[in-house]
Design a protein around this nucleic acid. Structure first.
Lengths: 294, 294
DNA sequence: CAGAGGCGTTGCAAAAATTGCAGCGGTTAG
DNA sequence: CTAACCGCTGCAATTTTTGCAACGCCTCTG
């Protein structure tokens, strides 16, 4: 899109922080870049950058414009995706921000199955905690977010929600393995391995122990779900996870026992996108598939 | 906006129906215009026009693109209006589609009062029946619609709604004048002057007589609310109107008597805009004022 | 059935816009 | 104070866009 090059330049200057640096990144002279920015500001009717002695920074008007630029680019992508859908082949690129729990089994399987039907669609998956995921949506860096217990939900349009009870995971020969369900009070008797506080599972657990007056004894805290699984499988620790991130068949050495709902309220896994925007066809169809799978 | 000239050209060709005609309108050569269209289609990745022997017409892809173009222009206007709001002066242009009933008193008063506070804002008011009004919104020809009993309400985002009982109007010396309220069965005893079927008041009346088994006897049908008022004021006929279109103080020769709600359900007057779009600041502020006035 | 009058498209030269280069004045960090 | 970095500008070179004329295609019309 040649006619949108000004927008690219504005973004480049925003990223680089100065015209000269942006000029290098863009393979263009600083003078040319400068003149295009000035010309644009002229037409636009207002300055969009603050001129600082060490470079340039977007002013409030520029921030507003930047959001317009992103929105307009996304909408153009949506139109193009829609058009190529019209001609038969579904093309496009789907950008997903999601929690770690979706990575090992769920998303790879869904993406593979979707790509079987539509090979011309590509994907990018970014691991984000629930706060970052929502921010990603509003900067148009992701089309879809798939998160457990989102934080604020402003500008978040829910496409699908599904309950996910918090599930304890442990080695097959752990004393508690084989039970149909567990109370939180039973778990705290053993060493625990927990996700860090920014994660939804942890929030739910904290809320539960706070209510019951228990405390989460000696524990290991990590932001790697992988590590939680391993510590549980090959140590004596109990980890916690949500069902969508578990696959008992592939890991027979792991026992999965749900906590009873009375103790730890099951959270919800949300699939959503930015409010007030229409998704490209590819993203929309993929979202439908996921919703069905959940 | 120089960089959006391609869009203007595409619209020009769409309007004119052929490159050569559009070229004249745009003060440009057909060849130049042609080449820009072709270049754009190249970048876009698909043809957007059908080449007919008598000219060009948008294909489905083109229709999609056209909508994007309009949306993007509107959003740019919104950003600019927002920005100039930031710099102090509130500028902008507000386009309103509304029913006839709003024309004589309500809108002129509101617009005058708004312009007193913000002289840099201009207005255009288009009379539309409720179906046209909704269409106007979706082609971005109007920012706001103010209509009585809208028809489909798809893509219509309601900002405010207010009940408007159907009101009979007649000469001061009409036998029914002076009554606090009226039944529909009492009205049909007299000659009636009704708005045409596309209007909301008429729909409500038709529904009422259909329910009660009455019939709307000898009548005059017109699409001019002005004419209804005059026929009522200076003849023996009974006309119908909604309160927002009446101003008893200025027309003492007219008696206004509401129909009782049991007979003719009062309809609603809706203020709204196109779903999934953000309004320019000026339009938004004006909408707020109107909502308060209603 | 032939020709006139639409239409979109194309080669080529002229015109216009954009770019690169070099250099200016200003501010900051050491 | 100097060196480094910044945004900005005059001028010439370059690239892009435009206008002109002509071509081939089609459809109406006499």
């Amino acid at each position: 899109m040649r006619h949108l090059k000004v927008y690219k330049m504005i973004e480049a200057v925003h990223r680089a922080g100065s015209i000269r640096k942006a000029a290098e990144d863009t393979n263009i002279t600083a003078s040319a870049l400068n003149r295009r920015i000035c010309a644009f500001e002229d037409e636009f009717g207002a300055e969009i950058f603050e001129r600082l002695p060490r470079g340039m920074r977007l002013n409030p008007a520029g921030e507003l414009l930047l959001h317009h630029i992103r929105a307009q680019r996304q909408d153009m992508a949506r139109v193009q995706s829609h058009v190529s859908d019209l001609t038969g082949v579904r093309r496009g690129h789907v950008k997903i921000a999601c929690s770690q729990a979706l990575l090992p089994y769920f998303l790879p399987r869904e993406i593979a199955s979707y790509r079987e039907a539509h090979p011309a669609v590509s994907f990018s998956v970014t691991v984000r905690d629930r706060i970052q995921a929502e921010r990603d949506l509003s900067t148009f860096e992701s089309d879809l977010a798939l998160v457990f217990e989102p934080a604020h939900m402003v500008d978040f349009a829910v496409l699908h929600a599904v309950r996910q009870p918090v599930t304890a995971i442990m080695s097959r020969d752990h004393p508690l393995a084989g039970r149909p369900s567990l109370r939180i009070s039973e778990c705290v008797e053993y060493p625990l391995v927990l996700p860090q506080p920014q994660y939804g599972v942890r929030t739910l657990l904290d809320r539960a122990v706070h209510r019951t007056g228990l405390s989460l004894g000696p524990l290991l805290e990590t932001d790697s779900f992988e590590m939680i699984r391993h510590s549980a499988a090959y140590g004596q620790a109990i980890g916690f996870q949500i069902p969508v991130g578990l696959n008992p068949e592939r890991h027979p050495e792991l026992a999965c026992v749900p906590l009873i709902d009375r103790d730890v309220t099951g959270g919800q896994l949300f699939l959503g996108h930015l409010k007030a925007r229409s998704l490209p066809v590819a993203a929309l169809k993929f979202a439908e598939q996921i919703a069905k799978a959940l």
